[in-house]
């Protein structure tokens, strides 16, 4: 069995206490929530913090409030979130988030994994997500213990992939995130939490804790999430499309947000595509044009499952599926085929 390295474990009861532990040695301390990402990484020595601050005993981080919008504590498990969103009345406004959360990993992992951990998920790469001995055999890589990015040896920056399912959905829904540190609290759009750099992929300061996520009330919005992966469970996304549109009564698009997951080191927004959709209904022609534009920022690299050319190529198809679903097309057959499981459509 792979063994964890030694570390000190802290189990604070309040966010304040946790922030103090973090502030004491921010460079060698890491937060752990469900541990489903961090602990396997530690076993493979990808991440080797001296101290872990466990967040699971902090009650205030686990609450989910559904009133004016949705406020999700960072330590709410994905299973809890999915359970809440299973209620069709709640789901109506947040379908994309529900579909994203429900497709993370497996039921066991969703029982442990939290939304905070999910949005802070380490970036992934086939050259990096390997055990110590394997990485030694390639003389390590830029992201840990080495110099080179083996994905593209001339790349000055790490190309590891943002693989969180919920972040693209949250960005499409216009969500924001609240960070707490010993110095204070700040709130920023989820989109601003990310950087397109495989190593420094978060703008979160080392002393900050993600405390909660706020999703605004979304009257008149529809949203959806499409995930590409090889199998119906376990697999991280290797391409995902989160899309949300606000439709006028005559079905004209008033606002649109398309976000691509797993095609760069951060979730990628598609502003040109968004603009192209506004002011007209979701016609076939509008969908086709938007799909072309949305596929542009998609830059998959050869460091995940499936080849990059094909992943790039099918980006268009996936954006089309998402927009057709938002228009009201019955795409349940397609979804069943791709998700390989029965996930209810939007209607």
């Amino acid at each position: 069995m792979m063994r964890l390295p030694n570390f000190i474990y802290r189990a604070p009861r309040t966010v304040r206490e946790a922030a103090d532990f973090l502030a004491a040695a921010p460079d060698t301390t890491m937060l752990v929530a469900g541990g489903t990402d961090l602990l396997p990484n530690m076993k493979r020595r990808q991440q080797t913090p001296a101290t872990l601050v466990g967040l699971r005993q902090i009650a205030e981080l686990k609450t989910i409030a559904n009133g004016h919008g949705l406020t999700i504590g960072a330590c709410a498990t994905l299973a809890d979130l999915v359970a809440l969103l299973n209620d069709p009345r709640v789901r109506r406004s947040y379908a994309g988030l529900w579909q994203a959360a429900a497709q993370v990993a497996t039921p066991h992992l969703r029982n442990m994994g939290t939304i905070g951990g999910n949005i802070c998920l380490d970036t992934r790469c086939n050259y990096y997500d390997q055990n110590y001995e394997w990485r030694k055999a390639i003389d390590f890589c830029m992201k840990k213990d080495g110099q080179t990015c083996w994905v593209a040896t001339s790349s000055p920056k790490c190309l590891a992939v943002s693989s969180t399912d919920t972040a693209p959905a949250l960005i499409a829904l216009g969500a924001s995130v609240t960070l707490v540190s010993a110095e204070g609290t700040r709130t920023l759009p989820v989109a601003d939490l990310y950087r397109n750099d495989g190593i420094h992929y978060l703008t979160r300061r080392p002393t900050e804790i993600v405390a909660s996520i706020q999703v605004p009330p979304l009257e008149g919005w529809r949203s959806t999430y499409w995930k590409l992966r090889r199998r119906g469970a376990f697999d991280f996304p290797v391409l995902s499309i989160a899309a949300a549109v606000k439709l006028a009564r005559d079905a004209t698009v008033e606002e649109a947000r398309i976000v691509l997951g797993a095609v760069a080191s951060r979730p990628m927004e598609a502003p040109e595509a968004n603009r192209s959709l506004v002011g007209q209904p979701l016609t076939d022609a509008a969908i086709a044009a938007a799909s072309e534009l949305a596929a542009k920022p998609s830059r998959p690299m050869d460091n995940t499952d499936f080849g990059l050319v094909w992943r790039k190529r099918v980006t268009r198809d996936f954006v089309t599926y998402a927009l057709r679903e938002l228009r009201g097309d019955d795409v349940r057959g397609l979804r069943r085929g791709i998700a390989r499981q029965e996930l209810l459509g939007l209607q």
Binding site: N126, D129, Q130, W134, A137, I138, R230, R231, G232, A233, F234, D235, D305, R340, Q341
Partner: peptide, 17 residues
Amino acid sequence: VHKFPSMLEYKSPTTLD
């Protein structure tokens, strides 16, 4: 090196598949 000596990245069908 073996491309992905792990059960996550060596793809084998799940019950859902």
